[in-house]
Design a protein around this nucleic acid. Structure first.
Lengths: 207, 207
DNA sequence: AAATTTCAGTACCTATCGGTACCGAAACGA
DNA sequence: TCGTTTCGGTACCGATAGGTACTGAAATTT
C-alpha cells in the first residue's frame, strides 16, 4: 500500500508527496485538525481525495505526518536549541525560535503543536492526544538538557531542571497564543526580554 | 423573541436558562467551538434544539453568551486582580487565578478564552474573532492597571506597562496550555514562582 | 508490443452538521 | 372558560462531513 513494492511496479505517483504534505500542514496549522475539512486539505494539496487516501491513509494519519514534517521543519529550532552550549543560550534560542516560527509571513500565526487540537470533540481526540504527547516530549527534552547543564555546573546544583523546562515551555506556548492573537514579531521579542530579566524593582513601600 | 413581552405573555420558560448556559459553557470549554456539536450542547443543557434556538438564537450566539458567563464566573479572578493595591499583587493574583481556573476539578482543564477557538475553519471564524477580542481586552485592562501603577510610583517611571501586561498575559496563556496538557495545579504554581523570580544565577564562565 | 499495476477522477456512500417547520400541550391574561 | 402565546418535542431540511467503489487512462516491466 505504502509504496509501489510488488513485482509489476506500475505507474508511479504523479505528484510530489512532500510538497502536498507541506500544503496539508499549512491547512492544519491555520484551521486546526477539526477545522480542516478533507475538501480544504485536498484542494490545497492539489490532489483528489482518492490520491490522498492512497498516499497517506486517512485524515488522522495525514495529520500525524504533517506534525512530523512540522517538527522537522518549522519547529526544528527546538532540536538546534538543545545543542547550544549553555542553559541560558538554550532558553534564549528556544524562545527566539518560537517567536520566529509563530510569526513567519508565509505561514499561519501560532504553533501547530498548540493550536492544532487544543480542545476537540470526540472525532479529534486522537489528534489532541498526539499533540499532548508532542508537547510533553518537547518539554522532556528541554528538561534533560537542563539536567545536563546542572551536572556540568552550568546551572546551580540546587536548581530544578523540570521546573525550569516547564517555565520555558510555558513561555513558548504563551508566545504562540499571542502570535495567534495577532501580536507582531517585535512585540513577542519584548516578551522574551522581559521574561529573561527580573521583575522590575518596585519601590519597597508604595504608600 | 428574546422574552415574553407582548400582551398575552403566554407560557413561561420551563428550564433554568442560567443553568443551561452553564452546561453549554462546560461543553464549549472542553471541546471548543467547532468540536461542540448542537447535539452535544443540547444534551448537556437538557433541552431540545428548538428550545435552545428560541432561548439563545443560534450556536454562535450561545457561544458568546457562554463566553460572557465565563468572564463573570470562572474568569472573574481577572477583575478582582485589577483591584489589588500593587502591580506586583495584581500579577500574582492574576497568575494564581489562572492556575486555579484552569485546573478546577469540576471543569475542563485550560482556559475557554484560549482553547475555545484558537485555530478554526471558516464556520468558526466568528468565535475565533470573539476570543481574539476577549484576550486583547483583558490584556488592555492589565495594561491600564499597570500604567496607573507607574503613575502612582508603584512601578518605575521608565517601565513599559504594555510590555509588562503582555508578559503577564503570555504567562497566563502558557499556563492554560500547560493545564490543557495535563500539568497538575502544583506544577503550574511552580511556574509562577519561577516567573516571578530571576533566572537562576549561573556561573559567569562555564568553560 | 502485451500484461500488469497503480494512477487520478467522478460519483456516490452513510452519518451528521447547523438550523427549522410543524405539532399538540401547557400556562398565562381576561 | 376562552383565546392567545410560547412551551417542549418530533421530524425533517439542505449541506457537508469523512470515506469508498468504480472507471478509464497512463506508466512500468517483461
Amino acid at each position: 500500500m505504502d509504496r509501489a513494492q510488488r513485482s509489476g511496479m506500475g505507474r508511479p505517483r504523479g505528484f510530489d508527496a512532500d510538497e502536498a504534505l507541506e500544503r496539508a500542514l499549512q491547512v492544519f496549522w491555520r484551521q486546526g485538525y477539526e477545522g480542516a475539512t478533507l475538501t480544504d486539505l485536498t484542494n490545497a494539496m492539489g490532489i483528489t481525495r482518492t490520491s490522498m487516501y492512497a498516499a497517506y491513509g486517512n485524515k488522522e494519519a495525514l495529520f500525524r505526518k504533517a506534525l512530523e514534517r512540522y517538527t522537522e521543519g518549522p519547529a526544528s529550532y527546538m532540536a538546534r536549541a538543545l545543542e547550544k552550549p549553555t542553559a541560558r543560550a538554550v532558553a534564549e534560542y528556544l524562545l527566539n525560535g518560537a517567536v520566529q516560527a509563530t510569526t513567519r509571513p508565509d505561514c499561519p500565526a501560532g504553533c501547530l503543536g498548540v493550536q492544532g487540537a487544543l480542545a476537540t470533540g470526540e472525532p479529534g481526540q486522537a489528534a489532541h492526544d498526539a499533540l499532548v504527547t508532542w508537547r510533553r516530549s518537547g518539554e522532556d527534552a528541554i528538561c534533560e538538557r537542563f539536567a545536563r547543564a546542572r551536572d556540568e555546573g552550568d546551572l546551580p546544583a540546587d536548581s530544578d531542571p523540570a521546573r525550569l523546562a516547564r517555565y520555558i515551555a510555558t513561555l513558548a506556548y504563551g508566545i504562540s497564543v499571542q502570535a495567534a492573537t495577532g501580536v507582531p514579531r517585535e512585540g513577542l521579542r519584548q516578551i522574551i526580554d522581559t521574561a529573561l530579566q527580573t521583575w522590575p524593582k518596585s519601590r519597597p513601600e508604595p504608600s
